[in-house]
C-alpha cells in the first residue's frame, strides 16, 4: 500500500477550479454582477413592493382556479402566507421564493434540452446517466465551494449550487417521458412523413408532458431544499433565519423559519402538481 503515494485528487480539483475561475473570469463577473443585480431587483424592487394583502389574494385566487374551484388549497395558501407575514418573515419569504424561481427556471431551461438529447441518443444517455447520479449523490454542501470560488457570496452562488443539485430530475424525467411514448405512435408519426422536429413537438413532447412536469416538480422541490444550505454562503431568505437560529441555539426562531419553508414547499408543490394535466385523458 505504501508503494503508491497519495494521489493528489484534491490538488487536481483545486487547480482545475482555479483555472476555470481565471479563464472564465469575465463571464463569471458578468453573471455575478448583472445577473446578481437582476435577481436583487426582482426580489426587492418587484416582489417586496407588492402589498402583502394583494400578493396573498392573488395567490388565493390562482389556487382556487387551478385546484378546480376547491377551497382546501386556497384556504391553506391564504392562511399559510398570512402566518408567515404575521411572523415578520415576509422579506425572507420573498428572497427564498426568488431563489427557488430562478434556480428552477434555469434548471428547466438546461434540463429539458439535455433530456431530449438523452432520449434521442443511446450514447448520450450512457454518458449522462452516471453524471446525473454523481450530481445528485454528491453532498450538496460540496457545490457551495466552487460556487463561492466562481461567484463569491450572495444569491448568485446560491442559485448556481441549487441549479447543479436540482437539474437532474428534469433531465431524467424528460428522457423517460420521451422514451415512454409508445413505439406505435412513433411509427404513426413517421408514416405520415414527419421531420424529427415535427415528431418532437407534435408527438413526443406533448405525450411526455405529464412525466416532464413531474420531473419539474421534483426539481422545484430540490431547489427549495437547497435554500437552507445556500444561505450558508450568504443567500438571503428563510434559510438564513434558520442558520441564525442554529448559531444562537434559538430553537423558536429556527422552527418558525423552518415552518415558513414547509408552507412555501407545500404551496409550490400543489401548484405545480395541479398545473400538470394532460389533454385527452
Amino acid at each position: 500500500m505504501e508503494l503508491i503515494p497519495k494521489i493528489p485528487v484534491a490538488e487536481w480539483v483545486s487547480s482545475f477550479t482555479d483555472w476555470v475561475t481565471d479563464t472564465f473570469e469575465p463571464l463569471f463577473d458578468f453573471i455575478k454582477n448583472d445577473f446578481g443585480d437582476f435577481i436583487e431587483m426582482f426580489a426587492e424592487d418587484w416582489l417586496m413592493n407588492i402589498p402583502i394583502w394583494l400578493f396573498i389574494v392573488v395567490v388565493g385566487v390562482i389556487a382556487f382556479f387551478i385546484s378546480g374551484k376547491k377551497l382546501g388549497l386556497t384556504a391553506f395558501s391564504v392562511v399559510g402566507l398570512w402566518f408567515i407575514s404575521n411572523q415578520e418573515l415576509w422579506e425572507e419569504l420573498m428572497n427564498t421564493f426568488t431563489l427557488v424561481i430562478f434556480a428552477s427556471l434555469i434548471s428547466v431551461v438546461i434540463g429539458v434540452p439535455f433530456g431530449i438529447w438523452m432520449a434521442k441518443s443511446r450514447t448520450v444517455e450512457k454518458i449522462l446517466t452516471p453524471i446525473l447520479d454523481f450530481m445528485q449523490t454528491m453532498p450538496a454542501f460540496v457545490y457551495l465551494i466552487p460556487a463561492v470560488a466562481f461567484f463569491s457570496i450572495g444569491m448568485v452562488p446560491g442559485v448556481a449550487a441549487s441549479v447543479i443539485f436540482a437539474t437532474p430530475p428534469t433531465v431524467r424525467f424528460t428522457n423517460l417521458g420521451i422514451r415512454q411514448v409508445s413505439h406505435e405512435l412513433i411509427e404513426a408519426s413517421d408514416s405520415f412523413g414527419t421531420t424529427n422536429t415535427q415528431k418532437l413537438f407534435k408527438v413526443q413532447l406533448p405525450m411526455a408532458k405529464k412525466t416532464i412536469m413531474a420531473g419539474i416538480n421534483q426539481t422545484v422541490m430540490l431547489a427549495l431544499s437547497m435554500v437552507v444550505i445556500a444561505s450558508m454562503i450568504g443567500a438571503k431568505g428563510l434559510g438564513q433565519t434558520v442558520i441564525t437560529g442554529l448559531q444562537r441555539a434559538d430553537v423558536g426562531t429556527g422552527f418558525v423559519a423552518g415552518l415558513g419553508i414547509v408552507i412555501l414547499a407545500i404551496i409550490i408543490d400543489r401548484f405545480t402538481q395541479n398545473l400538470n394535466t394532460q389533454r385527452g385523458e
Binding site: S182, E184, L185, E187, A188, D190, S191, F192, G193, V203, P206, M207, K209, Q278, R279, G280, E281
Partner: peptide, 19 residues
Amino acid sequence: VRREKLSMVFQRFALFPHR
C-alpha cells in the same frame, strides 16, 4: 413519398391521445 403517396392504418389504432 410518405406524405403524398402512402398512408398507414395501425392495428392498435395509434391515435394521438392528446389530440
